[in-house]
Design a protein around this nucleic acid. Structure first.
Length: 847
RNA sequence: GCGGGCGUGGCGGAAUGGUAGACGCCGGGGACUUAAAAUCCCCUGAGCCUUGCUCGUGCGGGUUCGAGUCCCGCCGCCCGCACCA
């Protein structure tokens, strides 16, 4: 008895749009902060509106969508918002290259990408849509920035920047390639500018401690952040120099102080600069250091080089005169920019000492009788102190404490914690960002813009035809009166780093009053985000900044939580094979659309001749191995595309896109559609096995979705589909059809709505939209089988399987196993020494 | 160098210490059809003396009645950080 409506194929082309409109109409996915239901906040990293969505977005948002829809079916009030990380350089680049306005370019892209996201049927609360480039967003950001300033977490200081002399602009580190500006190719200069900083280091310890509480985060990301924060404990103390000055150094190994044989300072250390002023050799060496490359490969092989200043430093305990070198391996940015060098127990110092013939003394050994064992390389491991005067015999830990105690006692220095983490420089000399809300007054200094004058809006009439910061060049924008004294003053023309925009957007999603950034009580309804999903590329910067902002806002009492994201999931990339031909030395790439792929190989459609099939790698424009989501949605429908995104590969791993794979998914959509058509209201009778399979599948799929193991959920659904197809019509089969319809609804929502509507007319028993329905209930009694297949092994090798009632006693199971003809043949008359019986699983006979 | 992860069929991948290869893709065979598409059924790790047997989860050891899984030692690949004192 099939329904004639199901005789025709499921037509995604018309069904998708229809159900998307129905969800909008019903305001199905708008989150209600006042709801009494348990709350669930599911968030995917919001996209940069670069032009069109790419397949990586589709995978990311499909995962979040399945979780959000699943949570909703399970009775949660779900917040699943979407917005746009809309400030940034590409908009300005477009302005410079194409003569368009950054705002126009950005909003056009947003419109395109929003339309594309809608085509995928995501259960998003568009009523809360945010674009960070709207004054309605960045105005609140300015208010928060002023609050942090008032709390002492924002400050200004002079700092070196990468200056592109051609483009007249500051470059981010990533924009400097081999010492040259990425756009102009000009040699980049270091310039000192007054810049704004956020005091992230104030929270260094707390950010570090918090990592251990983030059990829902990947270990990898936690470790990366831990390394980035880079806590080290040691001793800072000063050497008295032969020129009468004092030189502070920092060491994590005060226990090795008796092994110090020289002192080294960075090339840009003030002492080095002093020496260079009167010593041409030193000046030349410093110049040489500056030219040294900073790439990984160069550092790997870079020789340790130094310049002997002729100055000596007095060892704090022995008084020995240690030579002071300017050395290329010492960094000014870390510690004090000067180190005590212990060649025996630091590899860099070892290489340096070997080159310049400086003493290499062992001061740590495995035991006292190893005190004079030769050193062929630096030994950095644990041990006890030797050749170290009053430290001899102490462990490394004891010696560290003892040296710190003595140095502190003598007032020469103190134990100190040093962090790798730096304060966050947020000034950008760019137009397309949040204006920093301050005014510079000759009389009053730096004055915050009064809150009632926020937002400080970007001027719209800007000129990108010449290099530099358009805000600074603008004829009128920066000229304002001082809010304090009323005299003519100058507006700050720097804008905020775009990472600031993404450091609090999840709070604005949760609560968006017009008159303030968010309402603390409403935020508390939703935060922390239950599941955050995005790319691993944000493991450090975005995720650390967001954790910092949330702490900073908690610090000033604006929010209650410290950790914004309870669980984090980093999804893999979508990959595709490449197609190319050699043209002389150059490799010419072709897009999948230009190529006809078969199991034998690939040919170019244009000429029918073969092309080379290359490695499966991340989709990228340069390799042309991209598929456009809009094209594949048009070809296969949103549900097939979504299903593909969830199938096969575990979500944290890369997913290889293939034509054959998506076709398989599209076939499965139709197969389910046909199955739904077999719902038979007239059928009656039981099918206990199928009912059991259904309940087991519901429980397993639920567990898989909650673990984000979508590939496993997909496999379960395939199995259940086969089981239902094979079953004869019965009331239980109808129930199974209803069940699988609900199981696939988070993954294939359009197909599910279409079938739900049609089957409800036939007595399925549901109402309204399946998006608003309830996840099938599970009867725990049905999760266990009443018959089990038990493996029978002889010496650990499988010889037979027997099907028995569940819970059969051990002795009976053993008897049945021994009765097996196959087992007896394998035993072949040998004496049975032992029988291992695992009830309901296996019997192993040992002879 | 340090840190994190991964090695399972032709491919993507399953597998609380208990029947390795679920599920999907590819491939092969068949049914239906005048034919094709669509659909359905069967087979699909390797080898062999094919009622079955042997081998098989990167390599070498070990623990165990039993190891893809646990332990020790290697090899290879991927990712992140990196002259951080």
């Amino acid at each position: 008895m099939t329904d004639p409506r199901f005789d025709v194929r499921f037509d995604a082309g018309q069904a998708d749009a229809r159900w998307q409109a129905a969800w909008d109409e019903a305001r199905c996915f708008e989150a209600d902060s006042a709801s009494t239901k348990p709350k669930s906040y599911v968030l995917e990293m919001f996209p940069y509106p670069s032009g069109r969505i790419h397949i990586g977005h589709v995978r990311n948002y499909t995962m979040g969508d399945v979780l959000a829809r699943y949570k909703k079916l399970n009775g949660f009030e779900v917040l699943h918002p979407m917005g746009w990380d809309a400030f940034g350089m590409p908009a300005e680049n477009a302005a410079m290259e194409k003569g368009v306005h950054p705002a126009g370019w950005t909003y056009d892209n947003i419109a395109t990408m929003k339309r594309q996201l809608r085509q995928l049927g995501f259960a998003l609360d568009w009523s809360r849509e945010i674009a960070t480039c709207d004054a309605s967003y960045y105005g609140h950001e300015q208010a928060l920035f002023l609050d942090l300033y008032a709390a002492g977490l924002v400050y200004r200081r002079e700092s070196a920047v990468n200056w592109d002399p051609v483009d007249q602009t500051v470059l981010a580190n990533e924009q400097v390639v081999d010492g040259r500006g990425w756009r102009s190719g000009a040699l980049v200069e270091k310039r000192k500018l007054n810049q704004w900083f956020l005091k992230i280091t104030h929270f260094a310890q707390d950010l570090l401690d918090g990592l251990s509480t983030l059990e829902g985060w990947p270990e990898k990301v936690r470790v990366m952040q831990e390394n980035w924060i880079g806590k080290s404990t040691g001793l800072e103390f000063s050497f008295d120099l032969s020129n009468g000055a004092s030189l502070p150094v920092y060491t994590t190994r005060p226990d090795t102080i008796f092994g110090a044989s020289f002192v080294a300072v960075a090339a840009d250390h003030p002492l080095a600069q002093d020496v260079a002023a009167s010593n041409a050799g030193a000046a030349a060496f410093i110049e040489q250091c500056k030219k040294g490359g900073t790439t990984a490969a160069e550092l790997e092989t870079a020789e340790k080089l130094g310049f002997d200043t002729g100055i000596t430093a007095a060892h704090p305990f022995t008084g020995a005169a240690l030579p002071v070198y300017i050395a290329n391996f010492v960094l000014m940015e870390y510690g004090t920019g000067a180190v005590m060098a212990v060649p025996g127990h630091d590899q860099r110092d070892f290489e340096f000492a070997s080159k310049y013939g400086l003493p290499i003394t062992r001061v740590i050994a495995a035991s006292a009788d190893q005190a004079d064992a030769p050193l062929t390389e630096a030994e950095t491991g644990d041990g006890i102190c030797v050749n170290s005067d009053f430290l001899n015999g102490l462990t490394v830990a004891q010696a560290k404490a003892e040296v710190i105690r003595r140095i502190e006692g003598e007032g020469r220095g103190q134990g100190k914690t040093v962090w790798r983490l730096r304060d966050w420089g947020v000034s950008r000399q760019r137009y397309w960002g949040t204006p920093i809300p301050f005014i510079h007054c000759e009389a009053c200094g730096v004055v915050p813009v009064p809150k009632d004058q926020l937002p400080v809006k970007l001027p719209e009439d800007v000129d990108f035809s010449v290099p530099g910061n358009p805000l600074d060049r603008h004829p009128t924008w920066k000229h304002v009166d001082c809010p304090q004294c009323g005299k003519p003053a100058r507006r700050e023309t720097d804008t905020l780093d775009t990472f600031v925009n993404s450091s609090w957007y999840f709070l604005r999603f949760a609560s968006q009053p017009a008159d303030k950034p968010f309402d603390a009580a409403e935020v508390a309804q939703w935060l922390p985000v239950e599941q955050y999903i995005g790319g691993i590329e944000h493991a450090i910067l975005h995720l650390l900044y967001a954790r910092f902002w949330t702490r900073a806002l908690a610090h000033i009492g604006a929010v209650e939580v410290k950790e914004p994201f309870a669980s984090l999931f980093t999804q893999g990339m979508v990959t595709h094979e490449t197609y190319s031909r050699k043209d002389g030395v150059r490799e010419i790439y072709f897009s999948p659309a230009e190529v006809e792929r078969s199991s034998e190989g690939a040919v170019l459609k244009a000429d029918g001749l073969p092309v080379q099939i290359g490695k499966v790698i991340k989709m990228s424009k340069s390799k042309k191995n991209v598929v456009d989501p809009e094209d594949i949605i048009a070809d296969y429908g949103a549900d097939a595309v979504r299903w593909f995104m969830l199938s096969d590969s575990p979500p944290e791993r890369d997913l290889p896109w293939s034509e054959a794979g998506i076709e398989g998914c599209a076939r499965f959509v139709q197969r389910l559609w046909r199955l739904f058509g077999q719902y038979d209201a007239a059928a009656s009778g039981e099918d206990k096995a199928l009912r059991r399979k259904l309940h087991q599948s519901v429980a397993a799929v639920a567990a898989d979705i909650e673990a984000l193991s979508f590939n496993k959920a997909v496999a379960r659904i395939y199995e259940l589909t086969s089981a239902i197809e094979k079953a004869a019509p019965s009331a239980d089969r109808n129930e199974a059809i209803r069940g699988i319809l609900l199981l696939v609804s988070p993954m294939m929502p359009h197909l599910a709505e279409e079938a739900w509507a049609a089957l409800n007319e036939k007595g399925l028993g549901g109402t309204g939209l399946i998006a608003n329905a309830a996840w099938p209930a599970v009867d725990p009694a049905l999760l266990v089988d009443d018959e089990v297949t038990v493996a029978v092994q002889h010496m650990g090798k499988l010889r037979d399987t027997i099907t028995v009632a569940k819970g059969l006693p051990k002795d009976q199971l053993e008897a049945l196993a021994l009765a097996s003809e196959k087992v007896q043949r394998s035993i072949n008359g040998a004496a049975v020494k032992k029988v291992i019986v695992v009830p309901d699983r296996l019997v192993n006979i040992v002879t």
